[in-house]
Design a protein around this nucleic acid. Structure first.
Lengths: 346, 346
DNA sequence: TTGAAAGCGGTACCAA
DNA sequence: TTGGTACCGCTTTCAA
């Protein structure tokens, strides 16, 4: 474990010069720089980041705080962030803040206050008041990836537009009985879910179908979508011809439910999702695609800007989803949709 | 940003005493301890972990290195680790080392050498020689969670036994044409996959069915299992009556494929997985359950032991999977299995 | 039981 | 362009 003094000695220079040569801050003749670097390499020198941080105040670490790790969107964003950070030589410390968990409380009350990071990326966090308070108290640049940042920067999908276009896609195919599946107003009703529901409702209302608006709550997971869809679809009298999933996971759950019940997708039921999940292809799911990986990378870019230039104004980036038509949607079968209530077709 | 000197001053003691009172190392009278703690609280004092680390050599951070984040098993282990670490007040820095990625090279060549952690948990890493070399060079206690640790500690599932019992479950139901689905010897052939394949082969051989052994390679994902199963099951002459999935994701992919093809599970085809994935219930999947969350927590426990007592002998913990019978498996339908090659039933 | 002081391993100012 | 040196904020002997 050689230190910078060892390197300096071996290169025949002072600690100061060695430091300058290694960090690149300040003037060093090309010649000595080379000598110092050689010495460092020969000794296998690795700077102590603690010592460096102590004096510079920079940790060379970015904190990432997110409520779920095991959901596609979050894992993708995380990978996007990690990739970008690695390229910059920055460490990533993870704070998994499941809503309501004890760990989450610890994170907000203790961990964040330690400021063991130069900046923070909050993914889909939706902090409560007290939490937000703690968050701003940290006083480090923050970028959020879903969920508006009070006056910090934010990268978001235009959820309203995405859901609206999902519904409009079905409307354009002639569907009128279109339900929105997913999200539960009584249990962790996330802002994203609400915004998407709003977009769907707007599309319905604009099409003069306000009376057809129908929100089926469900947990925002594949099993959640499955269970809710089984309920919804089993009852032929309630059954819609089109379904907008709050996200692909829920939409795919619904497709699986439909198949189980012998309901043809898209013959009897058209389904649209939002995400372009890794399983979307496999289920031929028509969806409004977003690119969470890129969002993660973008968050890193914005955050690093804020770190180098603390005065910079917050950035709000709103991305648009891209419609990908696969084969979970088709023109409505008018005959069947007209008579379905009577036939009680299984 | 008050420092320990501020706390000391406010409490009317020296820095040394303040430090002792706050860290709990060394004697302090209960009285002064209380005064110091009050002062710290009043000032909102938070110790600089850099300064502390610089002198103690402890980072109070655990590094976690894993090849995937977006696969169920890994995400679960990660959450288990995170939960345990939070309770101990330890930070978790994440190294996402996707096989073959540039980031992975950076991690092994640069990031690990910085030793910004007191210990390392490697989840399903399967390092190459050069990587293993770098890993041991780090000289920090390491625990692996899948994949044997050379002479470091390891928490593993008895994969061989799990796969063997999966196959034996099918054999007990009278199946003879049993295939093993998943894992690709020509592309990232993971040790886990090989061990499970071995277990399956052993069961088949022990049952005198060595000639029926059949390994269908596939990517170890749901879409991978799906694609491979579509191929396998479309050809009625090749179609087995039982399927052991290398993991639940692959097994579920196969179930979805079967449903698409109109093959009844378990009527025409019995499927067993390994994992007890969050989707297992929804697909009524019979599986050999493991508990990755608990494995993560256990890894933390073992690692912390090694950190406090560097001399401790490596621990190798081998867990047994637990058979959960749901309804993706049933006694073989001898009639149909006997004639299937002729009927070419879709 | 407490305090003084010496570092931990770097960085960055200032002078040369 | 380089070197001397103060200091980042804490922990930990050692002496009192």
């Amino acid at each position: 474990m050689s230190g910078i003094s060892d390197v300096a000695r071996r290169a025949g220079v002072s600690k100061a010069t060695a430091s300058r040569a290694l960090t690149g801050h300040g003037y060093v003749s090309p010649d000595t720089r080379a000598r110092v670097q050689d010495a460092a390499r020969a000794l296998g020198y690795v700077a102590s980041s603690n010592a460096a941080s102590l004096v510079t105040g920079r940790t060379r670490t970015i904190g990432v705080i997110m409520p779920y790790l095991n959901r596609w969107f979050f894992a993708e964003v995380l990978e996007g962030i990690q990739d970008a950070l690695l390229e910059h030589g920055l460490d990533l410390t993870l704070y998994d803040a499941r809503p309501g968990s004890h760990g989450r409380r610890l994170i907000f009350e203790d961990f964040l206050a330690r400021k063991r990071f130069d900046g923070l990326i909050a993914v889909g966090l939706e902090p409560e008041d007290r939490e937000l308070e703690r968050l701003v108290a940290v006083g480090r640049p923050t970028v959020s990836v879903v969920g508006v940042g009070a006056d910090s920067s934010a990268i978001t999908l235009d959820d309203d537009a995405a859901a609206r276009r999902a519904a409009e896609h079905l409307l354009a195919l002639g569907h009128r009985r279109i339900a929105f599946l997913g999200g539960d107003p009584h249990d962790h009703w996330a802002d994203v879910d609400r915004r998407r529901l709003d977009g769907y409702m707007r599309a319905m209302t604009d099409a003069g179908l306000a009376h057809e608006v129908c929100h089926i709550p469900s947990a925002v997971t594949m099993p959640g979508g499955y269970a809710a869809a089984v309920d919804l679809l089993s009852d032929a009298s309630r059954r819609p011809t089109g379904l907008v999933g709050v996200c692909d996971e829920v939409a795919i759950g619904a497709i699986i439910a439909a198949r189980r019940l012998g309901i043809l997708v898209p013959g009897d039921l058209s389904v649209v999702g939002i995400d372009d999940h890794e399983f979307a292809e496999m289920f031929a799911l028509t969806t409004l695609a977003q690119d969470p990986r890129a969002q993660g990378a973008e968050a890193v870019r914005v955050l690093l800007d804020h770190i180098t230039d603390p005065g910079a104004a917050p950035v709000e980036l709103q991305l648009q989803a891209r419609l990908i038509v696969r084969s979970s949607t088709a023109p409505v079968d008018r005959a069947s949709s007209a008579i379905e209530a009577n036939t009680g077709r299984r």
